[in-house]
Simulated assay, not measured.
Amino acid sequence: MYATLIAAAVSWGAAAALLVRRAAHRFAVEPDEPRRGACPAGHAYASGPRGWLGPAHCADCPPTAAPGRRRAVGVPLTGAVGCGLLAAATGWRPELAVWLLLAPFALLLAVVDRRVHRLPDPLTLPLAAAVPLLLGVAALLPGHAGSWRLSVLGALALGGAYLVLFLVNPNGMGFGDVKLALPLGAALGWYGWPVLLAGAFAGFLLGAGYGLGLVARRRATRGSAIPFGPFMIAGALLGLLLGALARA
């Protein structure tokens, strides 16, 4: 049964990553531009869910328009590994359903931020409300291993900390990062303050390591902007794994 849970989570993570490619293409625009309504070849997307789910290229595109193998495998592999690790660490607890539901949105935000250095409000703001609500439902179910009260406080604490950093140095952090800190803080706070601090610190550590690596390879300077959202999400994943394993 436990192996079945992990296998199902791995399949879900890979499938979710494949399904959000079209949404990532549509959201990956500059702040003053409208969301894309057509595929990279210029074919208009269908209305409704079909226009948001699936590959970026539509059925009318030639086979040669598909992305390269490395790009095609990277995000699904990340989704599969991340969801599999969450399932292995969390087990049959109700909060696992919350983590898996959030995985597609986390992947989508990471891809969009990596491409255009922005975290769209239509994704971050609903997540800020959805995560505490979903965890509130999980807190009503037997077998949960967290605290809804600490989840709400965690959202406020991490969001407030990022807001202070933004106000102190607006050029060093985007306001989208502040908004993303709210749902991530809620998720990390579920397992308590030590997990919240560990997940937040891991995000900064990963981002700093990436930035220093670019500087060392002369692909950026100390003043260059980097997409911080993916590292916030990766740090939160590490924090959730730590919190889940501590309560195993």
Rank of each mutant, 00 (worst) to 15 (best):
L86F: 09
L242D: 07
S224D: 12
A181Q: 07
T90G: 01
H144T: 13
A138W: 03
L150F: 15
Y191Q: 02
H43A: 07
F27S: 13
G13T: 04
A56N: 05
G203A: 02
W92P: 15
P230G: 04
R118P: 09
A72I: 13
L245W: 10
L77N: 03
L156D: 03
L163F: 11
L5C: 04
L206C: 10
A236F: 03
Y191L: 08
P76G: 08
C39G: 11
G136E: 08
G229S: 11
G235S: 07
P62Q: 14
L180H: 02
A145Y: 11
Y191A: 06
F105D: 02
A157V: 05
R118E: 01
H43S: 04
G84E: 00
S224I: 08
G176A: 01
A41S: 14
L18Y: 07
V178K: 02
A28N: 04
L100I: 03
A89W: 06
A236C: 15
H144Q: 15
A80N: 00
H57T: 12
R26I: 06
F105T: 08
L214F: 06
C83K: 10
L77P: 00
A97Q: 00
G172S: 00
D121A: 09
C39K: 08
I6F: 07
A56F: 07
P194Q: 04
G68D: 00
L141R: 09
E33N: 07
M173G: 11
R218C: 06
A161W: 11
P120M: 12
P63Y: 12
V81L: 08
L119A: 10
A139V: 03
F105P: 01
L134Q: 12
E30L: 15
K179G: 02
W148V: 11
P194S: 08
D60T: 08
P132D: 10
L238H: 03
L163Q: 09
A3H: 07
V111I: 11
G203K: 01
G84T: 02
G79Y: 02
G48Q: 11
L133I: 13
G192D: 04
G192M: 05
V131S: 10
R35V: 14
R115V: 04
A80V: 07
A161S: 13
R36P: 06
A3G: 12
A145Q: 15
A9L: 10
L240W: 04
